Amino acid sequence: MTNQLVSFIKDLYQTNEFIPLHAPCFEGNEQSYVLQTIQSTFVSSVGKFVEDFERRVETYTNSARAVATVNGTAALHTALYMAGVRPNDIVITQALTFVATCNALYHMGAEPAFVDVSPVSLGLCPKALRRFLEQHAELTKHGAVLKSTKQRIKAVVPMHTFGHPVELDELIIVCNDWQISLVEDAAESLGSFYKGQHTGTFGEYGAISFNGNKVITTGGGGIVLCKSLGSGARTKHVTTTAKVQHPYEFYHDEAGFNYRMPNLNAALGCAQIEALPKFIKNKRYLAQLYRDFFSDSEFTFVTEPKYAQSNYWLNAIICPSPQVREKLLKDTNENGVMTRPTWQLMHRLPMYKDCLKGSLVYSEFIESHLINIPSSPVKNLTGA
């Protein structure tokens, strides 16, 4: 399989050079907009491109307000803060996620608790969430708390793994039953829709990343999606050092964050989002080619759930055994095609090893069987 896969991918990308997992694509107005920013001298947190980028994301996602931040972790930290998460709170999330999901909690003094992911989406499983709550939590007049410590369970954070939307309707029902806030880690899912609605717009807040390996990039950057103009205005205030507007005085009315996206990054984002529909079409067609390639093999290509339209940020296959997975990882990387395993589960990391967790059977299966394969948009892809 290795030789066939390497040849297939190198033919797709029309190169014998090393093929990364996901590289940015700059074919539009990136240089023009960045040069305009440099010429304006407004290269930091003030400038027209920041507001322009926020408006463009609002239009694309149909969110009431989008607030740009310096990176995706800062966006998630802000979203959790705005949802009312505070020190000593418990936040339930999935163990199969990038470490930033948990680090955002850790640095605000909250604790993650881990539940399993769903075979349907590879994201947080609503059935596993309900089982966890029934076993470990109780509902009081102040909301859900852990039975053992009486700590408040303030939020549930599903992550749309590799861009595939989680089972949101079912998760919302569980969160409503237990009076827990839903905050979406949509870092990987710009351009993904759940039943026609963009991810990140279902919870109280959503957070998107624009890191260099995402569907579009601002170099580094993120954005918070807000459900109302009022919550958006407060989010903007909090992320810009909570400075009260004044022609010249510096007065700050709370301990805010300096999470402002620089105008340089926003300029890059404005050019990138102009190409987003093309990128999504290209990536979805690439996923179909991969699906066809693996259709008669022992590998299972990960496809979008039936209820969703995914951006296919990172394409993935499930190998028949951990041994086959290890061999394929080694052989492809040695032959100039970058593949990688998914993240080590969060409860295996030293800082989160003592966190409360439910059964993680499917998360452990995915950890030992899944490989990500090159997913950059392909230039001049036929059919795209």
Rank of each mutant, 00 (worst) to 15 (best):
T342P: 13
E249Y: 09
D89A: 05
F299T: 12
D253F: 00
Y13P: 06
V50F: 01
T97N: 14
Y362P: 15
T69E: 01
M261C: 04
S148Y: 02
V145L: 06
S63Q: 08
E249F: 11
E54D: 11
I173Y: 06
A79C: 02
P377E: 12
A110C: 07
T97G: 15
G220Y: 08
K154Q: 13
P119R: 01
G109H: 04
L129R: 02
Q94H: 04
V166E: 13
C102Y: 05
A75M: 01
K150C: 08
E326L: 09
R348G: 10
K214G: 07
R284D: 14
P374S: 06
A275N: 11
F294M: 10
R86F: 03
L80Y: 00
C226V: 01
N265T: 01
A186E: 06
N282Y: 06
A233V: 01
A110K: 00
I9V: 15
Y312K: 04
K48F: 05
Y352T: 08
G123A: 08
Y81T: 02
C125Q: 05
V91L: 03
G256W: 00
L5S: 11
W343G: 09
Y312H: 14
L289D: 07
A242K: 00
T201M: 08
W313C: 14
L225Q: 07
Q31I: 01
N71T: 03
V224N: 03
K214Q: 10
E170A: 14
V91H: 03
E167W: 05
I172Y: 11
H164I: 04
L356E: 07
S32T: 08
S363I: 08
L289A: 05
P87H: 02
S231C: 04
D185H: 12
T382Y: 15
L349N: 14
V157R: 02
G196S: 12
A137E: 12
L171D: 05
H77G: 04
S45V: 04
K353I: 12
H198W: 09
A255R: 06
Q31L: 09
L122N: 12
R234T: 00
I153K: 03
A287T: 10
V43Q: 04
S209P: 03
L133W: 09
P262G: 03
P20A: 01
I371H: 09
G212I: 09
N372A: 11
L329Q: 10
M346K: 01
I223T: 07
Y248V: 14
D331W: 07
E298A: 13
M159E: 15
P158K: 02
K154T: 15
G206W: 04
Q309I: 12
H142W: 10
A187W: 04
K214Y: 07
A255G: 10
L370M: 15
T240M: 01
L171R: 14
T161C: 13
V378N: 10
N16Q: 13
F18I: 06
P24N: 02
Q245S: 09
T339Q: 10
T93G: 05
P374M: 03
M338L: 11
K227G: 07
L122D: 13
H160C: 06
T217A: 05
K353R: 14
Y352Q: 06
S44H: 10
I371L: 13
